[in-house]
Design a protein around this nucleic acid. Structure first.
Lengths: 224, 224
DNA sequence: GCCCCACCTACCCGATCGGGCAGGTGGCTT
DNA sequence: AAGCCACCTGCCCGATCGGGTAGGTGGGGC
């Protein structure tokens, strides 16, 4: 449509894509799926946030396909990368492509600047459609993600609360390992009362009332 | 080496592979990686256990590349498939290819008949080597899986215990949702005492002493 | 300077937990 | 018939939890 495409040498209408996923196998699969489409080209790959920042400059992608689960069992790394990416390169459309569907996670990703959220088990055409949508500046969510988003918005647990402090995440990890308040206190060189105070805040922020449920929610959210 | 290969039409030394993974993207990636090798050929794909049983007959693979995490957050499906596959087709080598590394999971997979265990973030050559090893009737584990296996064997929590009953898994799910023993009892139409009895057994079998830790271990093991 | 917030601490109290004890039933295998 | 096992139940008790009250410190922003 336009010849304003910043990347030199790219054909008119060609969508330049960067893949960010820690699994080489997945990157390879995405590449071979996407390069069947004439208007899509994978110009870069990265397996870590650092790598992503390094290669993004010289590859000038229009779209970043980002797996949220970069490190083992923690979404924050991918989420942080998403936020950093969209603030430093607002012209780039970040499309989150991940395994797990979680209402809060969808919302968190959007808040981190993602323009789309697609589950990894979509069929090829769904993924390609999402990429084209985002490249046109629109948003893209597959049916289930969209539904999850709506559900998530109906239960506004997130907006006000969430976002544990560093100390709380520390306590949370010990919580998951079955430590009592007293044990947590000894481990962190604080009093049992203080440990209890942190646990209470964790429960409140996660919207639960039992430590067992807190651990469950935290794992779902990728906090531990 | 030998011309005894059962599958008609296959070249000498060709390894016939079936892929089982619920994500089309991953299957596609594996396919394009493996088919770069002249001695490997992907003869079938399946995304569910049912599909796997249907296609295995007419594709006669030597190797099944199996993702343990077939359904959302439960390893049992893949594990069950692995056990069923190896008992019905003992000549087939099942190579587990999965995202998560867990000491107990490695051991459980081996007990279910797997001849290898490889993490999804291995490099291509590691995967190919593992496939060739298994196709020769040997076993294959990448370095980290092997280490996990050794660690797992040193802590024989599994051999004696493990394996929750259906009722216990039911209780476990309610546990994760933060229900008290009384709540669990009401939900399952049993007395609080009985709920407590089941919880006690769950703790014992998982080798923990707190419900929060039980939830943590259970999620790691893919039980919930 | 003041306010906010993360972090720390103490006391109280009823509910819950975890681990013992004791026991009973039905189904399946040997 | 005997044994095993999943499942069920009751009672006891000390430890722990969750929620509430009340406070104190130090750092950062307006």
């Amino acid at each position: 449509m336009s010849t304003l495409t910043p990347a030199a040498g790219s054909e008119v209408g060609t969508v330049r894509i960067m893949l960010v996923d820690d699994h080489a196998i997945v990157r390879q699969g995405l590449r071979s799926i996407l390069e069947r489409e004439r208007d899509l080209v994978v110009v870069a790959e990265a397996s870590t946030p650092d790598e992503a920042f390094t290669v993004i400059g010289r590859s000038a992608p229009h779209i970043v396909l980002l797996d949220l689960k970069l490190s083992t069992a923690s979404d924050t790394e991918g989420l942080d990368l998403c936020a950093e990416l969209t603030s430093r390169h607002p012209e780039i459309g970040v499309l989150v492509l991940t395994t797990f569907l979680d209402e809060q996670l969808v919302l968190t990703a959007i808040r981190a600047g993602a323009r789309g959220y697609v589950l990894k088990d979509v069929d090829t055409s769904g993924l390609v459609r999402a990429i084209r949508d985002v490249s046109r500046g629109e948003s893209a969510f597959d049916a289930r993600s969209a539904a999850a988003m709506v559900r998530g918005l109906h239960t506004p647990d997130t907006a006000e609360s969430q976002q544990l402090t560093a100390r709380e995440r520390e306590v949370l990890r010990l919580l998951a390992r079955g430590l009592s308040n007293r044990d947590i206190g000894e481990k962190l060189y604080i009093s049992e009362t203080t440990a209890k105070f942190h646990v209470g805040n964790i429960l409140r922020k996660l919207g639960v009332s039992r430590r067992a449920e807190a651990v469950y929610e935290a794992t779902k959210l990728g906090l531990i």
